[in-house]
Every structure is written in C-alpha cells, then in structure tokens.
C-alpha cells in the first residue's frame, strides 16, 4: 500500500501522520518534543512503524514546524514546508468551505484567512507568547492544576474574573491578586481563557477579516474552555476537527503526495532505519567576518550533513558538497 508521511516538529510537541494514496489517515502519533527534536523524530519513526500495517510503502515524506529543516535532513524529506501552508492545506481538505483557521500551538499562534479555497491572508504572533499554549501551561502550573483538569474546571465557572492578558507578567500578578481576594480557582481559570482569546484577537487577529466557518486547531484546541471562550468572543460556531492536534503533519503529508505525483523522482526517504543512527550536533562561531554567526551543524560519523545559522551562504554551500 502506498503511503505518505508528514512530520510536524514543533517547539513543544512532535506530530506524525501517515496518509494512504487516497489521502485517508492511516495512523498518527503525538509526542512531547522535550527540547530534543532529533531524538523525538527518531523515536516517532520507530513507534509509527509499529503502528503501520506490514505492506505499507512510504512513497514520500515532508516535514514542517519550527524544526522542519533539521527534521528534513534526518529523515530525508522530499518536501520541507512552512507550518502556515501545511495547516491551511489540511484544513481545506477537511472543510473545503472554511474561511478562517485559528491555530494555537505551544510557542506560536496563527490565523489564516481563506476565501474560495485559497489562502488570502495570514498572521502569526509577533513578539510574545502571551496568546499561546505555553502561557496556559505556565499559569496552570502556578495554580497547581494539571492541564487536563484545567479545561474541566474552567468550564465549571459561572462568574469568570477579568484578567489582563496583554502580557504573561501582568496576567500573573493579576491572577495572584484575584486569588488573594478569594475568587474561585474555576473563575480565575476561565478568566485566563478569556484573556488568552482576547489577546489572540488583539495581536494575531488584528485587522483580519474573520468570517465563518471558523476552524480551530492545534494542541490548545484540546481545551474545551478555550473553544467556549472563542465562540463567545466571535459569536459564531467554532469547529474543532477530529485530528486538530496533528493538522500540520496531515497537511505536510498531503503536500508531499501532490509533490510526488507531479515529479518523476522517487522519494528520498531514508527509511525507518534512521532511528538507529546516532546523529551528532555541535555549534561554532564563524570568524570569517565581524557578524560572528553561530553556526549549528548536524553530523554523522564525522561527516557534516547540514549547517544552519549563517547570515550568508558560506556554510550552507559547504554542506551540500
């Protein structure tokens, strides 16, 4: 059976999705990146191989997410794609008439505006993480509420408190203040959800033409309280796709399928065996000019596979030879 693999290596989680030749999801995987993108990609490959039927033949691999270039070299990707395009393509396959895609991940959040099946505008959070998953994670930890429990307790709120969501630092002092005044944890938690949603629309969604149908995806979409807060803010139904947390990986797989169909070359996929290989990463400061770029390199058995981080082509060129 022909299949296509999409790998989305984000800052917090690593996602893998395998689609068959009819673009139907065969299996998927959701792992925590834990700051070790290489190991997680390797571990992900090992695990997903066990989940796949024997006769599956991987005909194309694509990587996406913030570690897409690194992951691309490790697995031998046929396509390395940015996460905005990947998310949009996956959502369009799920709901062709979608007009607005909201994606909130671990370290960044995006909005994608679609008209007639084509992306017409997008936005990403610019400077801070106040509108993202790590903001919730951090605050849940402070209130000693597990992130699983978060959603359930926030939904139980009947009089949410108003929390300044502009900045995590202000939000935190606001929360402590409300807590010390005796507000219920439930109300503080839901107030936090509303703050995140407000911040998202003031920051990422600023000036965007938001129209229904609205699809909400990314890891934060697990949190039903955020879904509710979004619906209240937009005054519209917010659709959460069944595989919302792996949409980036699905999109990457769809894109590589399209790419392979349009090309005459076979896949560059290095096989599931790459999970056994010991890759070595290191970095150095380039002294060729006063820019002093920090160059990171990935090597295997003393041979450099790829380098990143330069402001010029000096080291990038070296890696291909």
């Amino acid at each position: 059976m022909e299949a296509y693999l999409g790998i989305d290596v984000g800052s917090v989680t690593t996602k893998l999705a395998v689609l068959d030749e009819y673009d139907k999801l065969i299996t998927n995987l959701y792992l925590l990146t834990e700051g070790k993108p290489i190991e997680m990609v390797q571990q992900g490959l090992t695990q997903i191989k066990q989940q796949l039927p024997e006769d599956v033949n991987i005909c194309g691999v694509a990587t996406t997410g913030s570690a897409r270039y690194l992951a691309g070299v490790i697995v031998g990707a046929d396509l390395v794609k940015n996460e905005i395009t990947s998310h949009a393509v996956a959502t369009l396959q799920y709901l062709p008439e979608v007009q607005t895609i909201i994606e909130i991940g671990g370290q960044d959040s995006k909005i994608i505006i679609v008209r007639d099946g084509v992306v017409t505008d997008f936005g990403m959070n610019t400077v801070c993480a106040a509108g993202t998953g790590s903001f919730l994670d951090h605050q849940a930890l402070r209130l000693n509420v597990s992130i699983e429990e978060f959603s359930r307790r926030a939904l139980a709120s009947d009089t949410p408190v108003r929390i300044a969501g502009r900045c995590t630092v202000f939000a935190e002092s606001d929360m402590i203040h409300k807590q010390q005044m005796g507000h219920r944890t439930e109300d503080i938690l839901y107030g936090l959800c509303q703050a995140l949603v407000r911040n998202y629309f003031n920051n990422v969604g600023l000036g965007k033409d938001i129209k229904p149908p609205v699809v909400f995806q990314g890891g934060v979409a697990f949190n039903q309280a955020i879904v509710k807060a979004l619906q209240e803010e937009l005054n519209a139904e917010v659709i959460v796709p069944p595989h919302h947390e792996i949409m980036g990986a699905i999109g990457a797989a769809l894109l590589v399928h399209e790419e392979i169909l349009n090309s005459d070359n076979g896949s560059k996929f290095k096989g599931f065996g790459v999970s056994e290989i010991k890759y070595y990463t290191s970095s150095f400061e380039c002294e060729a000019c006063p820019n002093l770029c920090e160059i990171a390199q990935l090597s295997l058995n003393g041979r450099v596979l790829a380098r990143w981080g330069g402001r010029c082509d000096r080291w990038e060129r070296g890696s291909s030879s």
Binding site: S66, N82, E83, I84, V118, V119
Partner: peptide
C-alpha cells in the same frame, strides 16, 4: 523565513 515562505506559497498557490 517562515513568514516569507508562507507568503510566497500563498501567492503561488493562488
């Protein structure tokens, strides 16, 4: 880089 790539993809696909 991510924004540029996404912007160009958007234009090419359009």
């Amino acid at each position: 880089v991510t924004r540029l790539e996404a912007f160009l993809d958007m234009i090419h696909r359009r």
